[in-house]
Each structure stands twice: as C-alpha cells, then as structure tokens.
Amino acid sequence: MKRLRILLGKPGLDGHDVGVKVLAHALVEEGFDVVYTGLRKTIEQIVDKAIDVKADVIGLSILSGTHIVLCQQLKEELNKRDLLIPWIVGGNIPDEDVEKIKAIGADAAFPTGTSIETVVNYFKQL
C-alpha cells in the first residue's frame, strides 16, 4: 500500500509551530510521509508545495484565530486550480468553528485540546 503523503502547512503570520512539529513527529513515527512547509506561508505557496510534492492531503495549523479567513482562501485557491485534494485544519480552533470550517470545505477540523492520537487515527482511516 502506498504511503500517504501529508503536507503540513503554516499559513498566515502565526509563529506557533510546536504543535505542528509534534504532530509531524507522531505521523512520521506511524509511517506517514510528512512534508512541512515552515512558517508564514501564503495559501498560494502552500498549494504550490502540495502540487510540487504530490501531497495526498493538506493539513493547516493555525493558532492566531485567523482560521476562517485562511480556510476561505484555501478553498478559493483549490477551486481556482481545479484541485480536489482533501484538507484538514488544526490548531487553536474553538469548538463552535469546527462546523464552519467544514462548511467551507475542510474534510475535518480539530479544535483546541484534540489529542495527537485522534489526529493520527484520522489519517490512518483515510
């Protein structure tokens, strides 16, 4: 079975990257192929990278509270390029925004306090 390639991206200006890196470690340990963009990437740069590395799924990490704006940007960018790549969001996400993010088009959104195990399990069942 082909290993799932996951692109983890940090869009926007938020510099909190402890969480995304902890997740990256956990996913690698579970055998996933993980690419991390680094900080402060535009949505365009993240989508470019996803195409470049042939990512099977995009994960955005957002802790600054700008998730709704950035998710809308991602949706538009994917539409613009006719891409059907699944994407998920984690970080500092209030519970009440989970459905809003899914309504924008995310396959999943993991609110603040989600365990690493939950996110890893999500990828396992993809």
Binding site: G12, L13, D14, G15, S64, G65, T66, I68, V69, L70
Partner: peptide, 22 residues
C-alpha cells in the same frame, strides 16, 4: 499584532484578517 511584529503594514495583503487580532 502579527503584521506589526513581522514588519508589515495594516494595508499589506498578507495582513488580511490579522490587523489588531493578537
């Protein structure tokens, strides 16, 4: 806020949604 911390003005494209947020 993050635009100020990263040397961007409030009217910069990269600052959308971030002005005065954190």
């Amino acid at each position: 806020d993050l635009p100020t911390q990263t040397g961007l003005d409030s009217d910069d494209n990269r600052a959308v949604g971030e002005v005065g947020r954190v």
